[in-house]
Each structure stands twice: as C-alpha cells, then as structure tokens.
C-alpha cells in the first residue's frame, strides 16, 4: 500500500474543468442540437409562417365558421372527455391499488393499452365497435336510439379512450403512497368511511387529478388518428381542428394551416397554464 502507483496519472493532468463528472459539454451539446434541430427550429417555423398573410388574414382564417365549429368540437370534446375520465380513472385507480381480486395485475397492465395501441388501430376498433351494426353500437341504437359512430358523441368516446390512462397513471402512485394512517386517524375521530374518502382521500388526490386531467386533455385536443375513423368528418358537425389543418395543406394553404396549428397550440397552452396555476395554489395552500 505504499508505492505510488497513482502518481503517474498526476503527470497526465488534463485541462481544468468546473464539473466533477466528465461529459458535460458533450451531453449538453448533443441535447441542444437534438432539441434545436428536431423541435425548436420547426416550431419556430410554425410561429412565423401564419403572418405571411398578415394579421387580418390570420383572423379571417380563424373566424371562418367552419374553423370555429372545428375548434369548438376539438376543445369541447377534449375537455368533456378529460372530465369523464376523472371518475372512471379514479374508480379504476382505487380498485387496482386498494383491492385484491383475480385479474388485477392484468387489468393494471391493460390500462396502458391506449398508450401502446397505434391510434389508427384504436380508431378503427372503436368505429367497428360503435357502428350501427357493431357489438356496442347495435344495442345502443336499438335500446336507446343513440348513434355514436359518425357523430360528435363518437369523438368524445374516442377521446375518453385516449385520455383515461393519463388519469389512472397519475392518480395511482399517489393513492398507493397515501399513508393509511391518515384514514385510520379519521376513523378514530369518528368519521364514517364515506366521510373519510370525501374529506381525507379525495383532497389529497386532487393535485394528481388535475395533472392527469391536464395531460389527458393535452393529448386529446390534438388527437387525430383515433378520431377520423369514428367522427364521420362532416364539416360544421363532426370535423376536428387537426383535420382542418390537413385539408388546408391539401389545398397548399400553408399559412392558413399554420395559423390553425398555432392557434390550437396557444389555446391549449393557456388552458394547461390555468390548470398549472390552480394546482400551484392548491399546493401552496397546503404548505
């Protein structure tokens, strides 16, 4: 343990650096090049392109009745779908984390299906299922007279499928880490089980629910593949905003397509920002 085997290394001293671990310049450089070339430069094009037709031109595109109807459907259906996902997602997350029953693990894995299933396949599947002669479409039409496929209702159904896993996957870990002590404490203080769930469990889940709602909404509002098969795509009725971008592009109206795209992005960021602020206020109130 005496000889200085490490001393030769001292002689090979390298240039001075401010980081203890190597690879900072390489990794950050790669990251910035990757991010810049793939994401930032193209998105900059989206931000610049619409103004080629002037502010008036952009406003004309966006206030067109067909465009307005498409925005109403895209944002309305996405919000509704995210909203529907909340109780459904809470129920699934609760059962999967709190109860033991046969098929629990399989169910838990299946929740990720909408992530793993290509959107076009999901769209095709839901269309087949809810078509007037489909396994679910036929009984719904016969018993209730409801039509789902090729209507705005179909859009909402497809978006629930898309948004649901976000809810389950954000609520599940919080629910699992929620200390049972708090619920036991509530019980010792005389709360009924339902009171405990309403006053102790649900408030603790609220921030996660907002996160999941936001993620589900963000994904749903831009969704394309799973909708275009089931929506029927009738202008003014069941036509979504992303489809209008495709239509504009087919007419080589780049500026108009970019205008719709930019408006969609900005509008959904405003909504996500509002959710974020709400969540931050909840967190601060708690701390």
């Amino acid at each position: 343990m005496s000889a200085s085997a490490s001393l030769p290394f001292l002689a090979t001293a390298r240039s001075s650096r401010r980081h203890a671990l190597p690879g900072f310049n390489l990794s950050l450089g790669l990251t910035l090049a990757w991010l810049g070339l793939i994401v930032l430069v193209p998105l900059a094009a989206l931000a610049i392109k619409p103004w080629e037709i002037g502010v008036g031109g952009v406003l004309a595109v966006l206030t067109d009745a067909r465009v307005l109807a498409a925005f109403r459907l895209s944002f309305g259906a996405a919000l509704l779908a995210a909203l529907v996902s909340v109780p459904v997602g809470l129920l699934i997350a609760w059962t999967v984390t709190r109860y033991r029953f046969p098929g629990r693990r399989l169910l838990d894995a299946l929740v990720d299906l909408p992530f793993a299933l290509p959107t076009a396949v999901a769209g095709l599947a839901l269309t087949a299922l809810f078509a007037p002669n489909g396994w679910l479409g036929a009984p719904l039409a016969e018993w209730f007279g409801w039509r789902v496929a090729f209507t705005p209702a179909g859009v909402v159904v497809a978006l629930v499928f898309v948004a649901l896993p976000f809810l389950v996957r954000t609520v599940e870990p919080v629910l699992r880490d929620l200390p049972l002590d708090a619920e036991e404490a509530a019980a010792t203080l005389g709360a009924t089980r339902l009171q405990t769930i309403r006053r102790v469990v649900l408030p603790a889940l609220l921030p996660a629910v907002i996160t999941g709602f936001g993620l589900g909404f963000a994904r749903a509002v831009g969704e394309y593949g799973s909708i275009i098969f089931i929506a029927g795509n009738m202008p003014m009725v069941s036509e979504i905003a992303p489809l209008l971008i495709v239509v504009k592009l087919e007419q080589f109206d780049y500026a108009g397509a970019a205008g719709i795209g930019l408006a969609m992005l900005l509008l959904s960021f405003v909504i996500l920002l509002a959710l974020n602020l709400w969540q931050r206020r909840l967190r601060r109130g708690r701390a």
């Binding site: 193209p42 963000a218 971008i245």
Partner: peptide
C-alpha cells in the same frame, strides 16, 4: 407530447 401529431407533421411541411 403536448403538440398535436398533425402539427408535428405540419412543421416539417412548413420547412
């Protein structure tokens, strides 16, 4: 992840 797939394609058409 918060950009619509259609917009993801659109940006490259714009370029």
């Amino acid at each position: 992840f918060s950009v619509s797939p259609v917009i993801s394609g659109l940006v490259y058409v714009l370029l």
